[in-house]
Design a binder for these strands. Structure first.
Length: 202
DNA sequence: GTGAAGATTAACT
DNA sequence: GTTAATCTTCACA
């Protein structure tokens, strides 16, 4: 089989084992891939949020809380941290930084690339713009559940591929949303999105 | 063992 | 703008 070239290379562990804010920015434009029995779905990451445990009141791992839920964040980067929120929706995070650094990046929105029919079936809608424009929605569309908790992103089922490189001036930094309880942490500009992309969440 | 709250979404008024 | 849906996790006893 011919060399696929850099645009389809799987992202390596070393990418994730770096500073969380740097990884967050560089995640934009990359392709999220999930292989399931029903088929393959791919989406371009267009919006993310960083959660840096020890100093981030919004993070589940704030103050180095280490529970059965957050423990995956204490390992190496490059693993999936999936949790159920409000009893109904799953949210997918990518664990970043090195061992004993409980940090992660929440995937908030992707642009559907492959397996769009499957996404429509799972989401029960034909509106492409609404398939993956939110953390709960993209997990539903791509079939990501807490069964994927701890999955190795350097494995074969759930991983990232190189995508387009997003120029700095197209990266929008804004405050995170829906975390008003987090006091001063809610003002951090830790939400990154691709400027003008119509698939980001509302 | 018991209870409160949440990194959301869709459907309402 | 407001609210219900729905269940795991965490804090406390």
């Amino acid at each position: 089989m011919a060399m696929k070239g850099q645009y389809f290379m799987k992202i390596k562990r070393s990418f994730y084992n770096r500073d969380t804010l740097v990884v967050s920015e560089e995640l934009l434009g990359k392709t999220l891939v999930h292989v399931t029995e029903e088929g393959v779905t791919k989406g371009k990451i267009v919006e993310v949020e960083a959660y840096i445990g020890p100093n981030d009141k919004a993070a589940h791992s704030y103050g180095n809380r280490n529970s059965s839920r957050t423990k995956i964040q204490y390992g190496e980067g490059g693993y999936a941290y999936v949790y159920l929120i409000y009893g109904m929706y799953n949210c997918m995070n990518i664990v970043t930084n090195k061992k004993d650094m409980p940090e992660a990046v929440l995937i908030r929105a992707v642009e559907p690339l492959e397996g769009i029919e499957l996404m429509k079936k799972r989401r029960k809608t034909d509106n492409i713009k609404k398939l993956c424009n939110g953390p709960g929605k993209l997990c539903q569309a791509m079939g990501i559940t807490k069964e994927n908790y701890g999955d190795d992103l350097c494995g074969e089922l759930l991983y990232l591929e190189e995508g387009i490189v997003v120029p700095k001036k197209q990266i929008l930094k804004t405050k995170r949303i829906n975390i008003d309880y987090a006091e001063e942490a809610k003002d951090y500009l830790w939400r990154f999105s691709i400027k003008g992309n119509s698939y980001v969440s509302k």
